[in-house]
């Protein structure tokens, strides 16, 4: 052990921290690395939407046989997969991370809320896209669902964007609650949101009042945008303002929850 290496640097009292983008990239790389080291987590993400597709869409000829309906069904399931992965990964994952002793250590490093939240969003988006790949493959080979390459790219882009409010919602839950409390809250949020958003049943079947409620949900807005991107069928004009509104609101909630969080709660 020699002295120079551990010698503290004398100049400025408060050296500027590294740029947020560099820190976000650093956290992103390590979150992906940690996730990949537990392959079952990645596999679960890949398998769940694919299985749902096999059981609920492929056997129904009236759905699987019609290009537009089949494509819409793939879109709904893909979005549900993304919502569920985001809410569980972040709602539950963040709450669990906060109970690990490494979390307070990371919070003592010179890094603020933004890079960590950005990295989590990036990791969520990357694994969400990965999870949708088998779904797209099944949709293409086993149903009449069809899409042009341009529309597929637009769809994936929309899907990544659509995951943002759910990642933020998950983080707001994860940073506010313990893991035990986060699990039921995530479940209670996910299914009504998915149903009201028309991910299971097409919203054309909704009564007028439910359709009105549905229009205000982030799931419906995301679904409409996704269907629009994939099939070219025009969606609601409200979809963009509703989705961006939710993103803004949930971003504020997530940042507030992160700032209020002081690790484990003591009472």
């Amino acid at each position: 052990m020699t002295a120079p290496t551990t010698a503290p640097t004398t100049p400025p009292a408060t050296a500027p921290p590294l740029p947020a983008a560099r820190l976000a990239w650093l956290h992103l790389r390590y979150q992906v690395l940690e996730t990949v080291r537990v392959p079952i987590a990645v596999l679960g993400n890949l398998l769940f939407p694919a299985l749902a597709m096999f059981f609920f869409v492929v056997p129904q000829r009236e759905v699987a046989g019609d290009p537009v309906v089949a494509t819409t069904a793939v879109a709904g399931l893909a979005l549900f997969a993304v919502c569920s992965a985001s809410l569980f990964t972040y709602g539950l994952g963040v709450a669990e991370d906060r109970q690990l002793p490494f979390d307070p250590f990371v919070r003592s490093l010179p890094v603020g809320a933004a890079p960590q939240l950005l990295a989590r969003i990036g990791t969520g988006a990357a694994f969400a896209v990965l999870g949708v790949l088998p779904l797209v493959a099944i949709g293409a080979f086993l149903t009449e669902a069809s899409v042009t390459l341009v529309r597929l790219v637009a769809g994936v882009g929309t899907l990544v964007l659509a995951s943002v409010p759910f990642v933020l919602l998950g983080m707001a839950v994860g940073y506010s609650l313990s893991a035990k409390a986060a699990l039921p809250v995530v479940q209670v949020l996910l299914f009504p949101l998915a149903f009201a958003g028309g991910l299971f049943l097409p919203p054309q079947l909704f009564p007028a009042w439910l359709d009105a409620v549905s229009q205000a949900t982030p799931t419906r807005a995301a679904r409409d945008l996704l269907v629009q991107a994939l099939t070219g069928e025009p969606g609601s004009a409200w979809a963009w303002p509703v989705l961006t509104g939710w993103i803004a609101l949930l971003a504020v909630l997530a940042v507030v929850a992160y700032r209020r969080d002081e690790g484990r709660r003591f009472r």
Binding site: P8, T9, A13, T14, A15, P16, P17, Y30, L33, E34, R37, V38, L100, P101, F102, D103, P104, F105, S108, L109, P110, V111, G112
Partner: peptide
């Protein structure tokens, strides 16, 4: 403020290291 912490070194608890890294 993260800026204040660029000059800070803290030890994590030994039980808290990410086990798979």
């Amino acid at each position: 403020d993260p800026r204040s912490r660029t000059g800070l070194g803290v030890t994590p608890q030994e039980t808290g290291l990410p086990a798979t890294l």
